[in-house]
Simulated assay, not measured.
Amino acid sequence: MNVMVFDIETVPDVDGGRRVYGLDGLSDADVAQAMYQLRMAKTGGDFLAHHLHRIVAISVVFRHADQLKVWSLGDLDSDESELLRRFFDGLDRYTPTLVSWNGGGFDLPVIHYRALRHGVSAPRYWEVGEDDREFRFNNYLNRFHWLHTDLMDVLSGYQGRAVAPLDEVATLLGLPGKMGMSGAKVWDAYQAGDLASIRDYCETDVLNTYLVYLRFEYLRGHLGAEAYAAEQGRVRDLLGTAEAAHLQEFLKAWDANGAD
Rank of each mutant, 00 (worst) to 15 (best):
H50R: 14
Q33T: 04
G233V: 12
E226W: 13
S72Y: 06
R114Q: 09
M181N: 10
T241V: 11
K178N: 07
Y210N: 09
I111C: 03
G119A: 08
V186Q: 07
S182D: 11
H148N: 08
H51G: 06
G45Q: 12
T95K: 11
V235H: 03
F87L: 09
A162F: 12
L98F: 12
R143A: 04
Y113A: 12
F62N: 00
V128C: 04
G174S: 05
L175V: 02
S27K: 11
L68G: 01
S197A: 15
A32G: 10
L173M: 12
A29G: 13
A196Y: 06
M40T: 09
L214G: 02
D75E: 12
W146D: 00
L84F: 02
D188M: 11
N257D: 03
D200I: 07
L91S: 02
H64E: 05
R18F: 03
F47N: 09
T209Y: 03
R199K: 13
L239P: 05
V11E: 01
R234N: 11
V3M: 03
F47I: 13
T95C: 02
G193Q: 06
S197K: 13
M40N: 08
D92W: 00
M35T: 06
A184N: 08
G177E: 01
L147I: 00
L151A: 03
D167A: 10
L239D: 04
G104L: 10
S27E: 09
D167W: 08
G221Q: 03
L214Q: 08
I55V: 14
L207P: 01
L52M: 13
Y158N: 04
M181Q: 09
K42P: 02
L195F: 10
Q67C: 06
L83S: 05
E243F: 10
W101P: 14
D77M: 10
E130W: 14
E82R: 14
V5E: 03
A29F: 09
Y213D: 09
T97G: 06
L26A: 04
A253C: 09
G74V: 08
V14I: 10
F47M: 11
T43K: 14
L247H: 13
D30F: 07
G105V: 01
Y36Q: 09
D28R: 15
V212M: 08
P109L: 00
Y113S: 11
E9W: 02
Y140S: 00
R85I: 04
